[in-house]
Design a protein around this nucleic acid. Sequence first.
DNA 1: AAAAAAG
Length: 504
Amino acid sequence: MAEPSSTAATAATAATAATAATAATASTADPPAPVTKSWADEADEETNNTSTAESESSSINLEALTIDDKEKNSSKFLDDPDDSNIQAVTSGDTPYTSAARFEDLSLSPELLKGLYVEMKFEKPSKIQAISLPMILSPPHRDLIAQAHNGSGKTTCFVLGMLSRVDPKVQAPQALCVCPTRELAIQNVEVLRRMGKYTGIASECLVRLDRDAVHVSKRAPIMAQVVIGTPGTIKKFISFKKLGTSRLKILVFDEADQMLAQEGFRDDSLKIMKDIEKDNKKCQVLLFSATFNDTVKNFISRTVKMDHNKLFVKKEELSLDAVKQYKVYCPDELAKIDVIKDYIFEIGENVGQTIIFMATRDSARLLHQALVNLGYEVTSIQGSLSNEERDKVVKEFKDGLTQVLISTDILARGFDQQQVNLVINYNLPNKHSLRDEPDYEVYLHRVGRAGRFGRKGAVFNLICDENDERLMSKIENHFGTCVTEVRAQSVEEYKAALKEAGLLQ
DNA sequence: AAAAAAG
């Protein structure tokens, strides 16, 4: 199946390039849109306590956002009962109209062409329809936005950056901070594709190679959009190679991790403060699939008082499209047997697989063990060199490798549509508490499968009481049932994958 | 006890 890879998802796969191209040039009435897939962008009840931070906030329903659906009765978008559950809290009295079409967003023709021709998008996904008007219309309020994995968050902020930047001004006007090198590179690639016809320049600021020119000897950045990781961005700002005075928009991808105490909080706050020094009105966008209550609380005090926000209920985040299984293994060593004897036996035909590991060493060792047994697998973890990391990711994205062993370096944001199977070799747990799961990491790992609303499956390998405790806590937290697979025959696994919709 | 970035 020939499909565009590494794109943020929208509901628009079905569009052919031909019809999309016509739509890009003619802003006349669109043909009736096909039925939109439901993206499980869902409701939230938890936001009632967070809205106390701003007394003038008004909570609005999606129905209230739909003003002209009589005219666009072809669009089931905002009326779809499964799909009308994002909780939007807007600040002040600025009215926002959900964008049923990209044409509703006053985008430049060049940007529309990028969306239709290069990205082959047809119309905004749920989160895009709601968040883009908030991002793009004055007074450009800060935004905290949560949306389901694979629902098109990247497009929201990439489009926001491309749209707000003035291509005639040769200075950084949009900055995006990401937790990993891989995610920064992926986001830049999306931005370059989407902005292909705009003439907007971009620069990716990630850890430099040892033999690279030192920052102090570099020319200042002229590119309008800069995407990178915290350390390198801080470095460029402190060496005055990244000017902050012209920045109009600052994005934190995986914002909960970027602003978590145990994450990148210090770096992120430093970057925010550096920008504030000479720039009072830079719009801040915070995007993630997950915001636990602690970080949500901190974040709402970090952004400007009059921010907008979009939240999803945690029970609704667990992916209906991805079927979750648990496999009881007698001991740690038996996990390798489960992988080679069962999962590899049937996994070849179901697309690509990512195996998540707890540590760099265990990733390296499992890789070695499987290679010694004659299996073709690759692995990635933070102790590899830049070149090795880039090579492993590229090979996987190009479909040259089928099985990738990874630490949580790829747990968030990594977008490869052909990944249908995720193996949790270990369940993720909080670093301080061995018997407390890291629900956010679990959700992000699971979200590597089932991109774009596709089918997917997760096998959680379980071998002791602690694993069982973690598993049941995860089930409770997301309100989902994780089905047991007995590690006794290939047939059991086949049945599981059939049930998940991955096998006929 | 760890992963991530980066020093």
